[in-house]
Design a protein around this nucleic acid. Structure first.
Lengths: 260, 260
DNA sequence: CGGCCAATTGACTGGCGTCAATAGGGGTGG
DNA sequence: CCACCCCTATTGACGCCAGTCAATTGGCCG
C-alpha cells in the first residue's frame, strides 16, 4: 500500500517582481517549440500578468483545497501536480515543465482538488484569480490555446494512468524516463541525450504507484541493464530506442504548442 | 500483469436521424443538474448538430488513432474512454454518462490517443469534425463551457489515477462504485439508492488496473460485507456512508454544469 | 442440445510492499 | 576540523496482496 506520514507544509513566500520579464521579449517564447502569437495577444497577456515570481524548490504553488486559485505559466524550472489522501498517501498526477500552464482546472472549479509543488527553483508568470474568465471575455482568440493546454495535460494524465494501471514496475520507470526525455527534447533541454533529472526516488514512486524501496530496485536494475547513466543530477539516455522498447508505449505527435 | 488477447473490432453502423431531438426542447437539458443556457446559444448548437445517432452496446464511437475525430454529446446511455496498448492490455480512463462531451481532446489534437466505446445502447448528438474551432469562432460564449467540461473530465481521470496508484483493491472497487453512484445521483438516475450498473467484471478490472479474477473476488467480498446488492443489472448501495469510508476518498463539489 | 460468454472459486505463484540495517552527502555548531 | 544530525539512496530478508492457471457453473442463443 505504501503509506507515509503526512509531511509538514513547507511554504516560503518567495520573491516577486512586477516585471521579471517582458512578455514581448520573452526568452521562452522564442523557442521553436512554441507557436508564434500575434503581438496584440502578447500585449494583452503582458497587461494581465500581475507578477513574475521566484519560488524555491519544495514550495507549494497551489494548495490542495485552495478556493479561487491563481493561474500561472511555468517560466523556468520543474513542478508537479499531486493529489494527497487524508492518510498521507500521495499520487503525483503529472510533471510540469517550462511553458506549461498551472491551475487551469482549479481556476474553472470551485476548489482545487490537487496541489502543485515546485520540484526545483522555479519562475512563474502569475495571472489574476479570475484569469480564465477575463481571458475568455476580453481576448476570445486565446480560448483555443487554453483548451489545447488543458487537453494536453489530460493526455499526460491519461498516459500516466495507463502506465500505472497496466505496466509492470520496469515498464513504468522506463516510460516515465522516456516521457520526460521527450518533453525536454521538445523544449531543447536535451544535449547529447542528456538532460536535468531533478526527481528523487520518492517522486518517482509517488508518480508510478510503487513503493519507495521497489522503485529504487527497479531503477537500479534498469540502470545496470544499460538504459541510462546518472551523474551530477543529469540523466543520459544511452539508447532511446532500447528504452522505448522497454516502455511499451507509442509515440505522440509533437506539434508547435501554444504558450500563454 | 494482466494481458489479454487483442479483441476483434466490433463496429456497427448504427441508425442516424437528422433530428432525433430538437435541442430547444431537449429532455436532458431540462434536468436540474444542467446550467440553463440562453436560447440563442441553444439555437446555435442545434444549427451545428449534424446527427442524432443511435449506437448499439459495444460499438466504437471514436477509434484510437483516428485523425480529425468528431465531437459528440452523450444524450443517453453509458460509454467509456480507454487506451489500449499494442499487446492488448487496456486501461479504461473514465466512464461517460449522459451530458458528457465525447472527443474534445481528440478534436484538439491531431489524432485521438484514446478510443471511446459504447457500454450500453447510446444516443449521441453529433457535431462536425472541426466542431471545437467553429464553436469558438462563432459562439465564443461557449468557450467557458468547453473548458469546464474538459476540466471536469480531467478531474475524473485524476481521481481514477489516484485510486489506481494508491488504493488497495478493495478501496478501488468501493471508490468506483461510489463515484458512479454520485454521478448518477446528480443526474437523477438514482431511486431508493438504486441505479443501473452496466459494467462487467472486465470493465471494472480494466478501469482499476486489477486482474479479472481478483476483481471478482474483491467484488464478492465487498458485496458480502454488506456494501451493496445487485439484481437485474441494478445496483443498490445499502449504506453510502459506509461505502464512503471504504473508498477513502473526499467529496467533490456538485454545481450546475454546462451542457453543450 | 451444444457452443459461447460472464462469473465464480480454489490452488499456487510471484511481483511488489514492508521492515530494517547501512552508507553517503550536506549542513551546522562545538 | 570534526562530530552530529538529517535526508536520500541502497540492499537484503521476509511476507502478503494480487496475478496466473484451471476447473466449474449458469445464462443466452442458435
Amino acid at each position: 500500500m505504501n503509506r507515509r506520514p503526512v509531511p509538514s507544509v513547507s511554504s516560503s513566500p518567495g520573491a516577486a517582481g512586477k516585471t521579471g520579464g517582458d512578455c514581448l521579449t520573452c526568452a521562452l517564447r522564442r523557442q521553436p517549440a512554441f507557436k508564434p502569437k500575434p503581438e496584440e495577444q502578447i500585449a494583452f497577456i503582458r497587461e494581465m500578468k500581475v507578477f513574475h515570481r521566484h519560488l524555491a524548490a519544495g514550495s507549494e504553488i497551489i494548495h490542495q483545497g485552495e478556493v479561487d486559485a491563481e493561474l500561472f505559466t511555468l517560466f523556468s524550472g520543474w513542478a508537479f501536480r499531486h493529489r494527497t489522501l487524508p492518510d498521507g498517501r500521495r499520487q503525483i498526477l503529472n510533471f510540469l515543465l517550462p511553458g506549461d500552464l498551472l491551475g487551469l482546472q482549479a481556476n474553472m472549479m470551485a476548489a482545487a482538488e490537487y496541489g502543485i509543488e515546485a520540484l526545483t527553483d522555479v519562475e512563474l508568470c502569475q495571472f489574476p484569480r479570475n484569469g480564465t474568465s477575463r481571458l475568455l471575455q476580453d481576448m476570445p482568440e486565446l480560448a483555443f490555446d487554453l483548451l489545447w493546454l488543458g487537453s494536453r495535460e489530460e493526455r499526460l494524465v491519461d498516459a500516466n494512468l495507463t502506465s500505472v494501471g497496466q505496466h509492470t514496475a520496469r515498464e513504468r520507470v522506463a516510460t516515465l524516463i522516456l516521457s520526460l526525455y521527450r518533453r525536454c527534447a521538445h523544449l531543447d533541454l536535451v544535449k547529447d541525450n542528456t538532460f536535468q533529472f531533478p526527481l528523487t526516488r520518492v517522486h518517482i514512486a509517488d508518480s508510478l504507484g510503487l513503493s519507495l524501496v521497489h522503485t529504487t530496485k527497479t531503477w537500479t536494475y534498469l540502470r545496470r541493464m544499460g538504459l541510462f547513466t546518472v551523474e551530477g543530477g543529469m540523466l543520459k539516455l544511452l539508447d532511446p530506442r532500447l528504452t522505448s522498447r522497454w516502455a511499451q508505449t507509442f509515440d505522440e505527435d509533437w506539434v508547435q504548442r501554444p504558450l500563454l
